[in-house]
Every structure is written in C-alpha cells, then in structure tokens.
Design a binder for these strands. Structure first.
Length: 481
RNA sequence: GGCGACGUACCCAAGUGGCUAAGGGAGAAGUCUGCAAAACUUUCAUUCGGCGGUUCGAAUCCGCCCGUCGCCUCCA
C-alpha cells in the first residue's frame, strides 16, 4: 500500500503526509462568507476538500474537519473604507443582519448536502467567537506585534520576518505594487487590520478594549482554527485566491501569537471558469448551485469536478456538463445493479482481483488526491466487468463487488448518495416496477407492441427508463429528469 | 510592472526520464435486438504549443520564444 503524499503550497512540493499528532488529523478549510447563495466556485472548493476529508477517513487518519462560516460581512469595494456586505443587504431588504447571514448559512448547507458533501465536524461562526478574536488581538498587542491606532488595531508586518513565505512575496516588492494605498492610521501600508473601529452607521458592532468595532477579515480563521484544532495543526485548505493576502496574514498573526508553526500542510484548490472566463461579479457570469441542479443531477456536477484534479482549474460549459452526465451514467449503469447484490455481511476485500483494483484506486488517491486517476481505475473495472460477464456468476465476486463500489465510488468519491444505494422508498419502488415489468413481458411475449411500448413511453416520460435485454427487461431512474 | 500556474487527439483529462502516451465524452463501422435503450467488439495522438540543448533514451530535465489563465483589491 502506497503512502499519502500531498502538494504543500508552503514548500511548493509534493510531500509525504505525516500527521502532527498520531491520534488524528486536524484540518481547517476557509468557509463561505454568507452574503449570497453558493456558486460553482464553492462547489469545486468544497467538493475538493470533501474528497480530502473522505480519503483521510477511509485511510484511517481519523480527520477532525473544521470549516468556518464568515457571518461578519467584511467589506464591499475598497479594502478599508467600503460598506459591510451583509450590512448592504440588510439595508436593501430591511432585515436583521444576523437573519440574512443565517438564511444564507442554511442555503449553503442545503446546496452542499445536495452535492453529497459531508458536513464538517464543526462549523464555527465568526460572530460567535468575538471574545476569542479579541483575546488574540490583546495577546498580539502585549507582544508588541500589533498596535492600536484611532480605535482600530493593526498588525505590524515588519515585526514578523516570515511575512510572504506562503505566497512567495517579499515585502519590499509588495510596497512597489501599484495598488497599495497609503492609509493614515497605519505605520506601514502593508499592515493589516485586526480590529476595525465601527462608524456610527455600522450595524454589526461589538464592544472591545478599543471601543466599538468589528473584527478584521483574517483574525477569525486564526482564532477559530486554533481554538478547535490547537496551535499547530495538520492541514489548512482554501481557494488559491486566498493565498495572498488572507492565508499569509493568518500565518503571520498566528505564529506571532504562539511562537509555534501554525500549519504543516497548506492545500489550495484552483479556480472555476465559465465558458473560459473567470466567474466574477463584474462579469455577471455567476452560476449558482441552486440554478444548476434544476437541470443537472448534483452527482453530475460532482462527477465533473472530480474528473479534473483539485489543483487544476476547471471550466464549466454545457458541453462539459453533458459529457460528465454521459460518463456518470455509464458508470452507474454498471455500478447501480451491482449495489443491489447481497453482500452477505461481507465488508472486506479478499479476492485478489478486487484487492488489486482497490490498490490501484488507493495509489491514485494517495497521489495528492488524484481523483481523475481514481475515476479511470473505476472505469477500467467497469470495462473488465462488461467484457467478462461470466465473472459476475461467482458468488464470492457478487458479494464483494458491492463492497468495493460502496467504498470507492461511494465513501471516497461520494458519487452514490443514499437514494441510490438502497434507502428511501427504493424497496417499494422496486416491488412496483417488478410487477409492471412482469406484465409488460407478458405483452411482449404476445407481441402486443402497442401496449408494451405504451408502458415504456409513459414510464420514460416519468423519468424511469426501461431497457430490454436478452435476459429480460430492467429499469433505472433517469439521471437528468 | 511583480509573483505563480498551465499549454497532451474534435472536447475534457491522467501521465513528469525508459514497456504499445491512462480514462471519459463525441464521432465512425460492426454484433445483439420487434422497435428503442444499454452493452460488447473494432476504430479514433509515430506524438505531447514552437525552436534549440542535456541524455544511450524526454511529453517528462534545462534555455529561449509564442499562447492561455490566475493572484498582487472583497472573492471558493
């Protein structure tokens, strides 16, 4: 069995994965800012880290997965002076800011559930951890690394020599950047806010040792990750675009506060484009998960995301989605019926051929979560089974194959939601469909094509496909209905 | 301007020094079949953006050039 290797942004190398503490792997992933419905960017990012979480679990690393919910809106427009995003919506819709944040938080979980993303073990809210953030800021001030200025608190970047080590930037180069603006409260233009003074009209506000205000953008992730995972933990994940400044600032404030290494492995997923263009508000090409699942099975979206590596960008187009849909159907045409086989209580892989397939699958996953390769292994299995149908006659094979697919396609890749693997009303539906097919077979034997086709057409229209084969007819649920 | 990623068939996408360059989609021909669908078989890159170099040997390493994208500002 191969060992897990991961690409660490900090070293820009593939590294052997060794947990900080042997008992379990601790992982933090930057969660959404809940001021809108989830889009495809969220889908890719959270499917990617769901895959990481699932593979860690299956390979026995016992992951503890924390993902924040950012419900302090942060700012719209220019970094320091803009309006809080949630505040903006609150004014427009005359609702409580917290009600808006709560609404989008629920919407986020709904969307992620549909994509069969396992919920993180802890989903801490930024607004629920204001005392922790204040405490951390006080600590930084006490150490002389942060300073108060006019009711706000800033991190003194010059006091942290490692600033820039994640994103490969040097502070003097950053200063030459065209867009760094001079800010009168800051000692240095690169200094970033830990705490912001609230203007009188600012809705989300808390008392602090420095007056009424609200936390800076980066501090919540440091405070909450360390609260639940400890001062040094294994994995920190997030989107590539957060490398700088967000993650860079997290490292600075955390390591300055504790004097210990913050995170061992930094994992970053690549971005989503739509028809070749970056998805962005300015382009007006945001695709929401809620809209896409009206047309496509959520598993098709998941399949598409998994068919490219998490560190590669992915382009969403109608053509790509159709291609993914056909591929997913091909996989399910074989896997679906096998899942119905009786496993007779079997839960281990013992047969050499199946063990070998699982080994190939594991090697792909251990290679920095290479899901496209893992999927290719499954397709090779599908091909092998289709080419050698006699293999499926063996009772041991029939018992063990469902175990194999539930583990690989199900537990690891998350492509088999409960409704497909035997929960809900599947048993009852099965009984009814078997009866219908039995009657229809009678019509077919009488060569009553009119009636047999009527049955098939009506079922097809209702989303149930009938396929007539040599060994009788079978049915399945349409992926795209 | 600075930093970084990438360029593999019609489309998507693995492979990063050495057996015949995975896999999916689309296309083509055939088998099966009341029709349809599915499945199966065969076919589909002498070649990996271009040009040089290193090497017995490179898609894989090095250099230059061309092109695409991202970050540097809120963003998954």
């Amino acid at each position: 069995m191969s060992e897990l290797t991961v690409f660490n942004t900090l070293t820009r190398k593939l590294e052997k994965f060794e947990p900080v503490k042997p008992d379990r792997v601790r992982m933090y992933v930057c969660g959404p800012t809940v001021y809108g419905d989830s889009h495809l960017g969220h889908a890719k990012s959270y499917i990617s880290f769901d895959l990481v979480n699932r593979w860690l679990k299956v390979s026995g690393f016992n992951p503890l997965y924390v993902q924040n919910i950012t419900d302090v809106g942060h700012l719209v427009g220019d970094a320091e002076e803009g309006e809080d995003k949630i505040q903006k919506l609150s004014k427009e819709t005359a609702s409580e800011p917290m009600a808006i944040a709560e609404g989008f938080t629920r919407s986020y979980f709904e969307d992620m559930d549909r994509l069969n993303i396992l919920r993180p073990h802890i989903s801490p809210r930024a607004t629920g951890h204001i005392p922790e953030q204040i405490e951390m800021i006080q600590n930084l001030i006490a150490k002389g690394i942060a300073y108060e200025s006019n009711g706000s608190v800033y991190f003194d970047v010059k006091k942290f020599p490692g600033y820039g080590k994640l994103s490969g930037r040097k502070t003097d180069e950053l200063l030459e950047g065209v867009r760094v603006e001079i800010h009168e409260d800051k000692k240095n233009p690169l200094d970033f806010a830990l705490w912001k003074k609230a203007e009188p009209n600012h809705l989300m506000r808390w008392n602090s040792p420095w007056g009424v205000g609200f936390p800076g953008w980066h501090i919540e992730c440091s405070a909450m990750s360390m609260k639940y995972l400890g001062e040094s933990f294994d994995i920190h994940g997030g989107g590539l675009e957060n490398q700088f400044p967000h993650h860079e600032c997290e490292i600075a404030q955390s390591e300055a506060a504790t004097g210990k290494p913050f995170v061992k492995y930094w994992l970053h997923n690549n971005m989503v484009t739509v028809n070749g263009e970056k998805m962005g508000k300015s382009k007006g090409n945001f695709i929401l998960v809620k809209d896409l699942v009206k047309t496509y099975d959520p598993m098709v979206i998941r399949f598409l995301v998994l068919s490219s590596h998490y560190r590669s960008p992915i382009d969403f187009s109608a053509e790509g989605l159709t291609s993914a849909q056909n591929g997913y159907e091909r996989l399910m045409n074989v896997v679906g019926p096998i899942l119905k086989f009786e496993t007779a209580g079997r839960n281990e892989l013992t047969l050499p051929a199946i063990r070998n397939w699982f080994m190939e699958f594991s090697e792909a996953m251990n290679d920095d979560f290479n899901s496209p390769r893992a999927l290719a292994v499954l397709f090779n299995v599908v091909k092998a089974l289709n080419t050698n149908p006699e293999y499926l006659v063996d009772p041991a094979v029939r018992e063990e194959l469902p175990v194999f697919f539930k583990l690989t396609a199900g537990e690891v890749l998350g492509l088999l939601p409960e409704t497909r693997s035997g929960k809900s009303f599947e048993k009852e539906l099965e009984t009814a469909m078997n009866l219908i097919l039995e009657l229809r077979t009678g019509f077919r034997q009488e060569k009553n094509w009119a009636k047999s086709d009527l049955i098939r057409d009506r079922l097809t229209a209702g989303g149930l496909l009938i396929e007539d084969g040599k060994e009788g007819s079978r049915w399945k649920i349409k992926t795209n209905s």
